[in-house]
Each structure stands twice: as structure tokens, then as C-alpha cells.
Amino acid sequence: MDQLSTGVPVMIHLETHIKQDDNVSDYQLDVDGQLVQMGQNLYLRYLEPNDETGEKTPVTMKFTSEGEVHLTRNAEAELRLHFVSGKRVTARYKTPYGIMPIETVTPYLETSFKERPFSGNVKIDYLLYAGEELVGNYKIRLQFTA
């Protein structure tokens, strides 16, 4: 895994299922990214295209040795989500108007990585709360291959 310290190009397939109130939407993305190892953590980075504006949003997923996942989206509003299996944890949503406190509850979290070829599979089911109000129910399915 020595080359991971300098970064390895990966192909990413991402599927997201979102349920907010009675609205359900599905999103798929196939994009090139980069996987980097720093210390005990793995970082998966990619640019998420916005079809409406043509801009690209930097996204980073951090995988810790403890099995936690951190997701950061650096758009006009910065979103930082933290997933810990079976726990409710504080996250952050920084808008141009201020910081909105949010929380994630992660009933299901699974990450698996293989070395040859280097690849990964990530499954996250989570509930997103703003205060005590449920914002939505989300499922992330992500695969990547070097």
C-alpha cells in the first residue's frame, strides 16, 4: 500500500437513495477520484458535478481505522457528516447565513477494502436530523476500484 501515501487514481460508482417526507429520489454518479492514505486513515476524494450550474463540488470521504466515516462537501454551504454505527453524532452544516446544527443517526454502516486490485465497498444508512426534526432517511452505496 506504499503508493497510497502519494495517492492512487480510482473509479467511483456512487448511488444515493433519499427519502424526505413522502418524496423519494435516487441519484447515481460515476466519476474518477483519488484515494490517499494518511496515517491510519484512508481519504477518498472526488469532484461531484452539478448539472444545473456546471460547477463541481469537492467531496472527501475519510475512513478511520475505528470504522467511522466522515463525509465533507465543500460547496457554498459546507456539509460535514460523521457516521458511527449505531450512534447519534453531531454534524455540521455551514451556510452563508451561519452554522446549522445537525445530527446523524447511523443504523447501518459497513466498509470493506481489498488490496489487489485496491478497491472498496461502502454502505451507509443514516437518518439526518435538524434539532429533533427528521430531515430525511438516506442510503449511500459506494464502490471504488484502482
Rank of each mutant, 00 (worst) to 15 (best):
E115S: 12
V89K: 10
D22W: 10
E78T: 15
E76A: 15
S112W: 00
R73T: 12
K123S: 11
I99C: 11
L81W: 03
V105Y: 09
E55R: 11
G120K: 05
Y27T: 08
F144G: 01
D125F: 09
Q34R: 06
H17M: 08
E133Y: 11
K19F: 09
T104N: 08
K56L: 08
T106S: 08
G54S: 09
V84T: 10
Q20W: 12
Y108G: 05
Y43L: 01
L44W: 05
Q3E: 14
S5G: 04
F83Q: 00
R88G: 07
L127G: 09
Q28T: 15
Y97M: 11
V59G: 01
Y129D: 07
D21V: 11
V24C: 10
E78N: 06
S25R: 15
P58E: 09
S119D: 01
L44P: 01
D30K: 08
E103L: 03
G98F: 10
M61A: 06
M11K: 08
Q28G: 05
G136M: 09
I124T: 02
K123E: 07
E76H: 14
Y129H: 14
V135L: 14
E110W: 04
V89T: 13
Q34G: 02
Q3V: 03
F63M: 05
D51R: 09
A75R: 14
Y97H: 06
M1N: 11
E132H: 13
T64D: 01
A91Y: 04
D22M: 12
R92Q: 12
E110H: 03
Q37A: 07
L109W: 00
F118W: 05
T16P: 04
V24N: 11
V36K: 13
A146L: 07
L29C: 01
H82Q: 07
Y27S: 08
I12P: 00
F144A: 00
I102Y: 04
K87D: 10
S112E: 08
Y108L: 10
T64L: 06
L142P: 03
T57N: 08
I102H: 07
Y108Q: 11
E76G: 14
T64S: 15
T16A: 09
Q28V: 08
E66Q: 14
H13Q: 01
Y129W: 13
E15I: 02
N23S: 14
Y138D: 10
R116L: 04
I12F: 00
G86A: 11
D30G: 06
E78W: 00
M61C: 02
S25T: 13
E133V: 13
S119E: 12
N121P: 04
S25N: 14
P96Q: 01
N74L: 15
V135A: 11
L14S: 02
G86L: 08
L35R: 04
D51K: 11
I12G: 02
L44Y: 02
H82N: 09
D30V: 04
E52Y: 14
T16N: 08
D21R: 14
L47W: 05
D51S: 12
A91S: 13
